[in-house]
């Protein structure tokens, strides 16, 4: 099944490459747009799911339940599930698109490597993977050059002899921006899931930056374009919170009694 998906992606990339200009970088960008269009309904569900979850977090009923069962985790979980049912919330709805996008990312990465066939064994594998109608001998060698990059290799832009990983930086920055402007502020920042989200939001840009620093730059092109399209989709729905990019203002300190 996995091979079938990778082969499908490889063929889609090569079809775009063959018929739309013979530029593999452009093929990756168009493939990203295409995958976003296909996943559009799922993304809509994710946005709606996030909104519903935010409404749930802000609801008085949930906050009352949290206070009431703060010492009984099991009961709290039961009540949470009951409230989910009552409010028609699927707690996994907001995760599903992300879960689906990860295999797409993995498969695309393997497809890029497969399509570029930078070694004899890879060319033999590609020969078996490509649909005969595409005519592989007519399109190899695939041009792996895009702007200053070799899409089969990790990217560095050499300025005065210093290799700057421009795409890795752009990946980290766009991942950070996307996470910040599309994640609704939590009702209770001290809630465990909110803190987990915050930690993920902190680490994810570094992680994605590191991935694109070390792997073929074709993957970085995909991630950057996917991030920008994700932000654009939220913006079109009026759901982007640009203020989240500004430095956080400290809430006014309320006098509190000491706790034991």
């Amino acid at each position: 099944m996995w091979e079938w998906i990778v082969n499908l992606f490889t063929n889609i990339l090569l079809i775009i490459y063959k018929y739309l200009g013979g530029n593999f970088g452009v093929a990756i960008i168009l493939f990203t747009v295409l995958s976003r269009v296909v996943l559009y309904p799922l993304m809509q569900n994710q946005i709606k799911g996030s909104q519903a979850m935010q409404a749930f977090q802000n609801s008085k009923e949930w906050q009352d339940i949290q206070k009431k069962y703060k010492d009984d985790k099991e009961k709290l979980a039961q009540e949470q599930m009951r409230l989910y049912r009552e409010m028609g919330i699927n707690p996994f709805a907001s995760c599903l698109p992300t879960i689906i996008q990860l295999p797409i990312m993995f498969a695309l990465y393997q497809s890029v490597v497969r399509a570029l066939a930078a070694s004899p064994l890879q060319l033999l594998i590609l020969q078996d993977a490509v649909y005969p109608v595409l005519g592989l001998p007519d399109i190899i060698p695939i041009n792996s050059k895009f702007l200053w990059m070799n899409l089969a290799q990790p990217e560095r832009l050499y300025i005065f002899g210093v290799g700057i990983p421009v795409l890795a930086i752009l990946t980290a920055v766009t991942t950070y921006i996307q996470t910040k402007v599309t994640t609704p502020p939590p009702a209770n920042p001290k809630d465990q899931s909110a803190m987990m989200s915050k930690t993920m939001a902190l680490y994810m840009p570094f992680f994605m930056g590191w991935i694109t620093y070390t792997l073929a730059s074709g993957l970085a092109v995909y991630i950057i374009v996917a991030n920008l399209l994700g932000i654009a989709q939220y913006a079109m729905m009026g759901k982007v919170n640009w203020k989240a990019l500004l430095p956080a203002q400290k809430p006014e300190q309320k006098p509190q009694g000491s706790k034991k």
């Binding site: 490597v113 497969r114 070694s119 890879q122 089969a152 792997l215 073929a216």
Partner: peptide, 8 residues
Amino acid sequence: CATGMTPS
């Protein structure tokens, strides 16, 4: 996945 990138 990166092993797939290793030239072979």
